[in-house]
């Protein structure tokens, strides 16, 4: 038997027996790519849930927050937190609008619309100030959050915000949301 015949014979045998050639990988469900993450690799990430999980140590009050706000937010959100629609700025109005949601002209703000206080901390820490996001210390974030909530008359001016107190703040529109009811049954009449 020549070598050629031998190879051909083996191939035929292989086909018949459905045996895989060694160069092919077997079907896999796990690949082992990526590296195990150490806590230090994940330290820079955060997400703060309504139960307060993810809130960092630290604290702040509205009095300190007024200063943080004046320096870091006021230019874009207005000295009275009324918003600034000017070209190049477009910072949202942050307070007011309570009682307007069912009206013909609903005004959605942190005060009137946001269901959770923790969202405010999470969002300011990750995305504000808009022109230098993530530049505030955690104490500054607690402070400016306290300031916004107190200007919105949601907390008292003297209340301290920290990982324990912030999740307990009850937002005015806490019960203003329902899950998606679609598909809308009225469309099947």
């Amino acid at each position: 038997m020549s070598t050629r015949d031998l190879i051909a014979g083996t191939a035929a045998l292989c086909l018949a027996a459905a045996c895989a050639l060694p160069a092919h990988a077997q079907v896999q469900t796990h690949y082992g790519f990526g590296t195990a993450a150490a806590p230090a690799d994940l330290a820079k990430y955060f997400a703060i849930a309504p139960d307060g999980s993810g809130l960092p140590p630290g604290s702040g009050t509205a009095a300190e927050g007024a200063k943080v706000y004046a320096e870091n937010c006021s230019a874009c959100h207005g000295s009275q937190l009324q918003g600034n629609p000017a070209k190049g700025i477009g910072g949202d109005k942050l307070i007011g609008g309570r009682g307007t949601l069912a009206s013909a002209n609903p005004v959605k703000t942190v005060e009137s619309y946001w269901p959770y206080s923790t969202t405010l901390f999470d969002y300011v820490k990750r995305a504000m100030p808009f022109s230098s996001p993530g530049s505030l210390t955690d104490d500054q974030v607690y402070s400016v959050v306290a300031y916004v909530l107190s200007q919105a008359h949601i907390i008292k001016p003297a209340e301290t915000m920290n990982a324990r107190t912030l999740p307990r703040v009850k937002m005015p529109n806490r019960n203003g949301f329902i899950p998606d009811p679609r598909p809308e049954l009225a469309l099947y009449r």
């Binding site: 946001w114 269901p115 969202t119």
Partner: peptide
């Protein structure tokens, strides 16, 4: 997580 983009 009730992020800003799923509430506000």
């Amino acid at each position: 997580y009730m992020t800003r983009e799923e509430t506000s």
